[in-house]
Computed example of a mutant assay.
Amino acid sequence: MHRGLKPLLAVAAVGLAAGCSSPSQPQVTFYSHGNAVAVEAAQFCDPTGQECSPPKPEAVGELRMVGRDPLQISVPAEVAGAPWQVVFLYRGLNGQELDGRSPVFTPDSRHSYTLQLPPDGARIEHVEVQQFSAVLSQGADGGVDFGIGGSWVLNVKQ
């Protein structure tokens, strides 16, 4: 399992414990080098985290990326209306698995993001759009962490 899915599973457990029903599910579109794929949510909750769809581990998109082209990500208003970010795994030239993340985008500030790879020849392997919910939990550093209320997953083929 990829590290990007761990927060998703924690939110899924919270949602199932709350006796959730299914809210409407927006799709996120990933685009690169003339190819696009619209991906269903692997998990989606209402903003309060009270009503959640059942987890769908099979809801993983696949997209072939050519060379060093960027990955463009488009999110609908239902996603952009809450804080969201992009997390990703990539492989460096030496084969080492590395991870990164975009800044957290504030509600309604943007509906798209372009993921540029580092200039060292790294290859992107896995991307996840994560929408934050209003569910709070105690952070490991003593602060507060927001739960992941929605997650859209993409595996990249080279």
Results as ranks from 00 to 15, higher is better:
P76R: 13
P23T: 14
Y90A: 04
P54D: 13
F88I: 03
F88D: 03
M65T: 14
V87P: 00
A77P: 02
G19T: 04
M65E: 05
V11Y: 08
L89H: 09
C20A: 15
P47S: 09
W84S: 06
F30C: 05
L71Y: 01
L93Y: 09
S24F: 04
L93W: 07
V75Y: 01
S109A: 10
Q96N: 14
C20R: 11
Q43Y: 08
G15A: 10
A36H: 06
S22I: 05
Y31S: 09
V87L: 14
G67D: 09
E58R: 12
D69P: 01
G49E: 00
A42V: 07
A36G: 10
R68W: 03
S22F: 07
Q96H: 10
A10W: 01
S21T: 10
D46K: 14
S102W: 06
P83R: 15
A36Q: 10
P54G: 11
A41Q: 00
R91A: 11
S22V: 12
V28I: 03
L89S: 12
A12P: 05
E97P: 06
F88H: 07
C52E: 07
C20V: 06
A42N: 01
L93F: 12
G81T: 02
P54E: 15
P107D: 10
Y90T: 04
Q72F: 15
E97Q: 14
C45E: 07
T29C: 02
G92K: 15
P107I: 00
Q25R: 12
V104K: 07
D69M: 06
P55C: 08
G92N: 10
T106M: 14
K56S: 10
P26W: 01
W84H: 01
C20Q: 09
F88E: 07
Q96Y: 09
L98C: 04
E58P: 09
V60R: 12
I73R: 00
V28Y: 00
S21V: 09
L63P: 04
E40V: 14
S102R: 05
Q27A: 04
V66G: 11
Q96R: 14
S21H: 11
G81L: 04
Q72P: 11
V75L: 05
P26I: 03
S32N: 03
R101V: 07
V87H: 01
V14K: 05
Q50N: 13
Q50F: 09
R101M: 09
E97Y: 11
V39Q: 02
G92T: 15
V75G: 00
Y90V: 04
E40H: 12
F44R: 00
S102Y: 08
V37P: 01
P107W: 02
V75D: 00
V79G: 00
L89P: 06
V87G: 11
G100D: 05
V86F: 02
G61W: 01
V79C: 03
